[in-house]
């Protein structure tokens, strides 16, 4: 199986294991299926409040996938599963070890928060093969690290190590290889303890608001804030704070 999904409490853990570190149409479709499944469980006793993506992000595409033609009628784009991950409503934490190149980098960019092992490396090698990223890499990379570093990575194919990835803001923290899964699991755990509607709306506000003018984005944040004031969770959060006890969020 190139993708497995397991559940620990309110965390869905998606583990990537592309054969030989190479992604193909099937492995990306499996990722998309897992993301849609986890993303769909926002309510009820099995609600998913945070998603953790771990395992082998991969070093490239298979030769067959590279030759695959996108844009045929009735055929999903090759990157559709990566876009499905980016559309998951819950916050998505990535725990990245080893090579995270090409489609691996694109999967990482579809996650919200990236924590990495000291041995992780990042690259967008597509242009060397006369190609472009096919799963949103040219768009999400610039939004993640800004224009200067996105163009450097896309035009040169430079392989950057974990420390450099932290310096340019591609990732949020570097951990020893044996500790990165634990750190990402703990971060996902903290997110899962927060108000679940709030974490989903916070994610939405950041990604959607970044595409607006600041003036429109501030109005949008205000409207989401007002919407949250109608929730039981927000009332519970304020009550719990006043009585100095941990809140019990229900997702309502």
């Amino acid at each position: 199986m190139s993708v497995t999904i397991t559940f620990e409490g309110a965390i869905a853990i998606i583990t990537l294991a592309p054969e030989g570190g190479r992604h193909d149409r099937a492995s990306i479709e499996a990722l998309g299926d897992a993301a849609v499944y986890a993303g769909g469980h926002i309510d009820g006793p099995e609600a998913v409040r945070a998603i953790l993506v771990t395992g082998d992000f991969g070093s490239g595409w298979t030769d067959e996938a590279l030759g695959d033609v996108d844009g045929l009628p009735g055929v999903e784009p090759l990157g559709a599963g990566v876009h499905a991950l980016a559309e998951a409503p819950q916050p998505v934490v990535a725990a990245i070890r080893g090579a995270c190149h090409g489609p691996g980098l694109e999967i990482a960019l579809a996650c919200d928060i990236r924590l990495v092992a000291a041995d992780a490396t990042f690259a967008a090698p597509e242009t060397a093969a006369g190609m472009l990223p096919r799963a949103g890499g040219s768009q999400r990379l610039a939004r993640a690290v800004g224009r200067a570093q996105a163009l450097r990575l896309l035009l040169t194919g430079d392989v950057v190590d974990a420390v450099e990835a932290r310096r340019i803001g591609l990732v949020s923290a570097v951990h020893p290889a044996l500790e990165v899964d634990g750190a990402a699991r703990a971060l996902a755990g903290r997110i899962a303890e927060r108000g679940p509607i709030a974490t989903r709306m916070g994610k939405e506000a950041v990604h959607r608001g970044a595409e607006m003018t600041l003036e429109q984005a501030l109005r949008y944040e205000t409207d989401l804030t007002i919407l949250l004031q109608s929730t039981a969770d927000r009332a519970e959060g304020v009550r719990a704070f006043a009585s100095k006890r941990p809140p019990r969020f229900t997702g309502r």
Binding site: D112, I168, A198, K203, A210, E221, T225, R234
Partner: peptide, 28 residues
């Protein structure tokens, strides 16, 4: 506490910080 920043933080944080860092502040 079950709500989101409402003095502009969800919009200003990603305009000052890289996206991963901004999302870590806002969602965790």
């Amino acid at each position: 506490l079950g709500y989101i920043p409402s003095a502009g933080g969800t919009q200003t944080a990603p305009r000052h910080l890289q996206r991963s860092d901004a999302l870590r502040l806002v969602t965790s």
